[in-house]
Design a protein around this nucleic acid. Structure first.
Lengths: 244, 244
DNA sequence: CGTTGCATTAGTACGGTGTACGTGCAGACT
DNA sequence: AGTCTGCACGTACACCGTACTAATGCAACG
């Protein structure tokens, strides 16, 4: 006869697995995540390897695998940490839907800006407790608005989408800007402009690549651009509410 | 005396470097990119390794490095290929700004949907010729609109941001949906709901995790959600034009 | 106060990655 | 015919994630 495998399986999801601690281990998930975040913030996501994280904690590499099943789980925890920063402190959240949505959006953008790496791996993230809280908070922002649940859901998604997209593109441009514009790139752009295939861009940038780059940077980093875009989106939402 | 190093440096940007061809090589950049795209589309971005791409072409791994300086350049080329799909055929582009922007946005979303992998690595992409064409085309869409160049620039960015964000989140949800919802995840969600910390979500989902997941899926994949969000954004833009 | 059991730590090893470097072949030009 | 060099690619190295196994040391029990 076969013995049945134990009925009690270890949960496969990290949020369901208690942190180890029966005999007070030397580390905690929080410490590990903090170390990983520090590396990612300072040197980018690719610098985060299990070896590097362990090293920073003065632990053996494989020790991490006692706290976390694999690297993906560590990344999940890192993301949720960022989502924690996205949350607006409860008492600060405005009661007026438009302002409240603005607060959440701004905070979201700030959190992603602070953790540049997270934008590079947005597609890998799985939602955790803080992600759920973010959704709850968004619903709270719209609580007073005269909208159906379905409409609220779609509008929350709409704003998240804008914010993610904005943060992502802004970060890319910032990278580009920091890296500077090597003559090769200017030359490439100049050649493209001179080809005559882009009459509107040429008109827009004045036909001079180097000057055009400055112009674009000026526009991209123009004060309040995020807020202006957000206002457009909120206008669209408000219009929908009014014309109901 | 020292001999000066050659003044003529190889351009560091792939768009400026002629494809090799003095003695008719066995491969082309286009072939290499096509192979890489095929792998990425079929098995995801992580499956694209220099070895895999070379293998698919029946070439030695290091052969690729004759056509491309490193893997980043290959990725750059892959991205530009996707941006090529984003372009609306010139004669199809509407003369009316609102419709034209809609055409571009829809096509962008379709291209990213078709190449799921590109969304996972959005942050890595550098703009190439097709990216420039996309911008030119967006300017063309707004050519007839009574807006300043600055305003056009910001509005184009606004729409791109929404589209990127939407495509990204949609793809994530689709992954999640395809992978199904293992009991562990349902259990986690149920426990969170039961905690009482999320009254609004509980109300929204009816307190039952499994049913709630279905409800969310229904909402997320609801026909026309992308278009509705887009209309909100376009409404916001139109409002701005009207109130000028 | 041993001694035993298991929570916790960690080393080794394997199969993967990108790519620096060097070599060798063969087509084209003198 | 001889030389140059465009082109192809094998080898080797440092790094990665992690399966597996062994060592360590604390806590509780007899």
């Amino acid at each position: 006869m076969y013995e049945m495998a134990s009925d009690v399986q270890e949960p496969s999801m990290i949020w369901l697995r208690e942190e180890p601690g029966a005999r007070s281990p030397s580390h905690t998930r929080a410490e590990i995540v903090a170390a990983a975040l520090a590396i990612a913030d300072a040197e980018g996501f690719d610098a985060v390897s299990m070896r590097r994280v362990a090293q920073r904690l003065g632990a053996g590499t494989m020790t991490l695998y006692y706290y976390v099943r694999n690297k993906d789980e560590l990344i999940t925890l890192m993301f949720d940490e960022v989502m924690g920063e996205v949350l607006v402190p409860a008492q600060e959240l405005s009661g007026e839907w438009r302002e409240a949505l603005g607060q959440i959006a701004t905070r979201t953008r700030d959190a992603f800006k602070h953790h540049r790496w997270s934008l590079d791996r947005l597609g890998d993230g799985r939602p955790g407790p803080n992600g759920i809280r973010h959704f709850e908070q968004s619903l709270q922002a719209l609580a007073a608005a005269p909208l159906s649940d379905t409409e609220k859901f779609e509008l929350i998604g709409l704003i998240d989408d804008y914010v993610f997209g904005f943060a992502l593109r802004e970060a890319q441009e910032l990278d580009e800007h920091r890296r500077g514009w090597p003559p090769q790139v200017v030359e490439f752009l100049q050649r493209e402009l001179d080809s005559g295939d882009y009459p509107l861009i040429s008109g827009f940038l004045g036909g001079d690549a180097a000057g055009g780059i400055d112009r674009v940077a000026e526009l991209i980093f123009s004060e309040g651009r995020f807020e202006r875009g957000l206002e457009r989106v909120l206008d669209g939402i408000e219009g929908m509410i009014v014309h109901k």
